[in-house]
Amino acid sequence: MSLAKRIIPCLDVKNGRVVKGVKFVDIRDAGDPVEVARRYDREGADEITFLDITASSDDRDTIMHVVEKVAEEVFIPLTVGGGIREVKDVRRMLNAGADKVGINTAAVFNPEFVKEASDRVGSQCIVVAIDAKKVSEDTEQDRWEIFTHGGRKSTGIDAVEWAIKMVDYGAGEILLTSMDRDGTKKGFDLDLTSTISDAVSVPVIASGGVGNLEHLADGIIKGKADAVLAASIFHFAEYSVEEAKQYMASKGIEVRL
């Protein structure tokens, strides 16, 4: 008996509502975040991640109120990402009841921000989100780069080097999304996941591409991830978190049941 591998459902939140959509297209309303979070908690989610996809920064207060409400009745760790650009944003989210904040684009444009934030609030609260895409040809050795703007813009930064640098700068955890797999339901990019997981000392959350329960187990066993994140398979009620855990346990993975 030891540390359990985690299953983290992710909720995309827009203007205070949970939305469902594939690759941010065909977005539909999927309910009240508090209700959905409560359901995942009941099903045994180990943590919940909220990704604020509200376009305008004027509406950022909305996600804060969502976090406040959820934190009043759901007593498991909560992570909030999207639009976190300054230490002030980090503090506001933590004060609202988040345990960790995800920093993505802001880290790419200003890596010092990660240092500053982790110095102020501690590494354990800082999750650096990395969106990576394979750039090598099939005949070459695998290489991935960091992409921004939903996977459309390359930064030319090597993903493995970036992950190492972010941990040096104080990231307490890495949320790793394969932009090649995101929304495809073909499973995680396992080579990417295991390469990054081997390269860093902190926990890695695998994300992007989950279409079935086997994918989740593969992320842990083959991808060497410490946690797996999925959105659509749980939203569309294809599987419950509980079923996912039972399946992982049947594959010999230590989970919290």
Partner: peptide, 12 residues
């Protein structure tokens, strides 16, 4: 197997 630091998650 490598164990990550911080020790983060649900343990017995």
């Amino acid at each position: 197997e490598k164990l990550k630091i911080p020790h983060m998650g649900w343990n017995n």
